[in-house]
């Protein structure tokens, strides 16, 4: 049994620099690979919806026609499963945590007009080709019927 066993350590701590940071005034340093929040490079997104189905929390929404990707930052648990599942690898985990706020809000990202126009064009061509193919099939079928 000893008395004042901790005294030397306590004295040392008294004259040391503080171990904590003055957080809001002093910027925190996050290490590489810290899971803070999800970021998207929206123009690479193909609106496949894999992330929506993967999200354990249902925090994501994708609208294919409008070309938007919506995340409820306050529902997101920063698990990184959507990043893992994304086939185009256009989702990233970035440093920096979600800041608290007075109410829940969603962040919506919309694709740039050029990308949207190109996609619209692609869809139009695809629809045209499909219609042509269908017409050809029908013509062939009716010919066979006649024959």
């Amino acid at each position: 049994m000893a008395l004042m066993k901790f005294a030397p350590e306590a004295l040392k701590n008294l004259f040391m620099k503080p171990a904590t940071k003055m957080y809001p005034n002093e910027e925190p340093v996050y290490p590489e690979g810290s899971r803070g929040h999800v970021k998207i490079s929206i123009d690479d997104c193909i609106s496949c919806g894999m992330c929506v189905r993967a999200c354990p929390n249902g925090a994501l929404k994708v609208d294919r026609n409008a070309g938007t990707w919506t995340i409820d930052r306050f529902d997101c648990i920063a698990c990184g499963y959507c990043v893992l599942k994304c086939p185009k690898k256009c989702l990233f985990m970035e440093k920096g945590y979600q800041v608290p706020g007075p109410e829940k809000k969603e962040d919506t990202y919309t694709k740039s007009p050029e990308v949207l126009a190109a996609e619209e064009e692609k869809r139009r061509i695809a629809a045209m080709k499909a219609a042509e193919a269908k017409a050809a099939m029908e013509a062939k079928a009716s010919e066979e019927k006649k024959g």
């Binding site: 996050y30 290490p31 590489e32 810290s34 698990c79």
Partner: peptide, 28 residues
Amino acid sequence: NLFYQCWRIREKILDLHELTAGGRLIFS
């Protein structure tokens, strides 16, 4: 005093968690 000292040491381990896994408590 001892309580602060223990948690101060623990802070180094939490930093290791964030460095290696990306989260301080939830590793995922």
